[in-house]
Simulated scan of single mutants.
Amino acid sequence: KVRSRYFHRIGVSGKGVLKLYDNIKGLPDHKIFHPGKSYPVIVRHSNSLSADDDARIDARGAAIRILSDKTGAESPILDLTLKTGKAFYARTISDFATWLVCGLAAREEHVKRVPHVRDAVWSSLRNANSYAELHYYSNICRLFRFTDGQEMYVKFKVRPFDEKIDEDSGKVEPIGILPPETGAIPREKNDKRPLLFLAEDFQNRVNSPGGVRYIFQLQFKLIPQDEATQDIALDCTKP
């Protein structure tokens, strides 16, 4: 029996506040995401596979727990998981399970037939200097119901507050068809940074006077009427 996580096994967290802008043009009224609202949040950063060395090139994660804004309440009202890269290599749970067990050779044959899946794999990897200097994406759509009964698909993104840090921060160029079987690419031999330097950096930033600042973004899409267009909108293997 597995008693620990396989992916994103260890992480580093910080507490903060999610503050929505007072005026969000075009946003329908929503129970949680309402202009002017503030919520306590917990953000957890992690590496997808590399639990013992932050210098390995790996996908980086940002899990966000939004807590109730009611006094004395500590229960979560929404949990979100985001990662680096605008797409994910598995469209369904079945695809994900098959990817995990089929082996590298079978995966490489698969991405030859669907090259955008290869792009999704490589674009997720980041050679990071700081968790706080990366862009994170939910990849999958959520279904949102607004107070007027309207429904939309929504995706989430978390980006650094500093606009000079663009989406290509930490980008990795492919060095083969797919990364090694282990998923994470080993650190360079001359890289002398501590094993958990990303975790240490985030802790130091959280405890600094300025803290860590992110922009939390939502992307809405009207639900298409026909099934084929819905299927395209829900395909997480493409940006």
Rank of each mutant, 00 (worst) to 15 (best):
R205E: 08
E108A: 11
R118E: 01
K192R: 15
F156N: 02
W122F: 11
D119Q: 11
I185N: 03
N204Q: 09
K157F: 09
F197A: 00
F144C: 11
I175N: 12
V114D: 07
F144W: 11
V114F: 07
Q150L: 13
T182W: 13
I177K: 14
F202N: 00
L178I: 07
R205C: 02
N204L: 13
P186W: 08
A120L: 03
V172L: 00
V154I: 10
L104N: 08
V206W: 00
L195S: 04
E109Q: 13
P115V: 09
S130P: 08
F156I: 01
V206F: 01
F156T: 01
L134V: 15
I140V: 12
E108P: 09
I165P: 01
L196F: 12
R126W: 05
E181A: 13
L196R: 09
Y136E: 10
D166F: 06
H135K: 08
P186N: 04
G149W: 04
P186E: 08
V117C: 04
R187Q: 07
L125C: 05
S208T: 04
V111K: 07
V154S: 09
V158S: 04
F161P: 06
G211L: 11
G170S: 05
S123H: 06
E167T: 12
E109V: 14
T182R: 10
A105C: 08
E108V: 03
H135I: 04
V206C: 05
G210L: 10
G170H: 02
L195C: 02
I165L: 11
W122N: 08
E167W: 12
N129S: 07
R193S: 03
N139A: 14
A132W: 04
D201A: 08
L143C: 09
Q150M: 09
D162M: 15
E167Y: 06
K189C: 06
W122C: 08
V154K: 05
R126Q: 04
S123K: 03
F146Q: 04
R193L: 05
D191R: 13
L125E: 00
H116N: 15
I177V: 15
P194C: 02
Y136M: 07
I185V: 13
A199D: 10
P180S: 09
A184S: 12
D201F: 01
H116D: 14
R126I: 00
S130H: 02
G103E: 05
E163S: 13
F202W: 05
P194L: 05
L104V: 03
P186C: 08
Q150T: 14
V172G: 00
D148Y: 10
L196D: 15
F161N: 15
A199Q: 13
A128S: 02
E173S: 10
S208Q: 10
E181V: 05
F156Q: 03
S130M: 01
E151P: 01
A106S: 07
G183C: 04
L196P: 11
K155I: 01
H110M: 08
A199M: 14
S130T: 02
E181N: 14
I175S: 15
L143S: 06
F197P: 01
